[in-house]
């Protein structure tokens, strides 16, 4: 196949004498990197550049080309538009609703599962499987649970004595909570698995020593497990914040931003501006703002991770 036809140019640099080895590696190295590099440039670098450029133009989907130069008008429009700020607020609201339960519950589940030792497969099935399912399947299941008057959630509320519960996804104050509960159920398995993996890396000798010294299980968790998991917690927390800022699927599928715009998030605003209003220039400006918001967190994560790795290397 392609592998065979590619083989010949590589062999040219393949027989270096000891001294030429360094030079001889340059050509094959770039040939090895090229396929991935081309995709990287075409679908990561170029879109970023293109997005930044179009954000300064009145680009639309209905006409070819960039359209007229707009200067900072698109940014000005976004930054003075109530929809943008409410989109930002709903994105942050979603982050605030989902991050604490996703981190804390996952931590608790992992500690308990690590303790129990039996039936690990069952807990992984219960907590982790939802995470690998498509958001669209999850949204169908939960929209059905939240169905007003006849849904399971409603029946549960009635059983608790609330005879006339508000429809979760149809009430502005409740809709985002409904989306958040769905998300916690859907994605907790990711953090659960990260914590569980980190727990295995804690040497058992530490617990044995603590046990010999008479430490109770609570003290062991408090003084061994929690401090040793702090690195994982930082990672989980930052990954979770980044994922929450990119929220799109659940809102699009479950509420379409509604009722009204009470659950509209930034990425939803971006896609609506681009694909409903055809205003890709304005959508790009909103994308750039969201992009840099996420980038700040991502860079923070990278810096923290580098520092932690250096520190770990010193120890």
């Amino acid at each position: 196949m392609t592998a065979q036809t590619l083989a010949s140019p590589w062999s040219m640099a393949a027989r270096p004498t000891a001294g030429r080895r360094r030079q001889g590696a340059a050509r094959p190295a770039w040939l090895f990197i090229a396929p991935f590099g081309i995709f990287y440039l075409l679908f990561l670098v170029w879109p970023v550049i293109y997005m930044i450029i179009t954000s300064f133009f009145n680009t639309t989907l209905v006409k070819n080309g960039f359209g007229s130069f707009a200067g900072f008008a698109n940014y000005q429009e976004m930054l003075t538009k109530p929809e943008f700020w409410s989109g930002l607020w709903h994105t942050i609201q979603f982050t605030l609703y989902t991050v604490p339960p996703l981190v804390i519950l996952a931590f608790i589940f992992a500690i308990l599962a690590n303790r129990v030792q039996h039936g690990q497969w069952f807990f992984r099935l219960a907590f982790f499987v939802p995470f690998i399912l498509p958001s669209a399947a999850i949204a169908l299941i939960w929209s059905f649970i939240y169905t007003p008057t006849s849904g399971l959630w409603n029946a549960f509320q009635t059983w608790l004595g609330n005879s006339n519960p508000s429809p979760v996804l149809g009430t502005p104050n409740l809709a985002m909570i409904g989306v958040a509960i769905t998300t916690v159920w859907w994605t907790i398995g990711f953090n659960f698995v990260l914590y569980l993996a980190a727990l295995q890396d804690i040497p058992r000798e530490l617990y044995e020593a603590a046990s010999v010294d008479g430490a109770t299980p609570w003290q062991q968790i408090r003084f061994i497990t929690i401090p040793l998991l702090s690195r994982t917690t930082t990672l989980v927390l930052l990954l979770q914040i980044i994922a929450s800022l990119k929220i799109f699927d659940q809102v699009y599928l479950m509420t379409a931003g509604g009722p009204g715009i009470s659950t509209q998030v930034l990425l939803g605003l971006v896609t609506n501006t681009a694909f409903t209003d055809y205003r890709t220039g304005a959508a790009s400006a909103a994308s750039v703002l969201l992009f840099f918001l996420i980038l700040i967190i991502a860079v923070t994560r990278q810096v923290i991770e580098t520092i932690q790795q250096r520190r770990a290397a010193l120890i």
Partner: peptide, 21 residues
């Protein structure tokens, strides 16, 4: 370093330029 930079790019946010491309 380009690869490290690439990790930080959220592909979802690039949906509009990718569509245009």
């Amino acid at each position: 370093w380009l690869m490290i930079g690439g990790i930080m790019i959220p592909p979802q946010v690039l949906i509009v330029p990718v569509f245009q491309e």
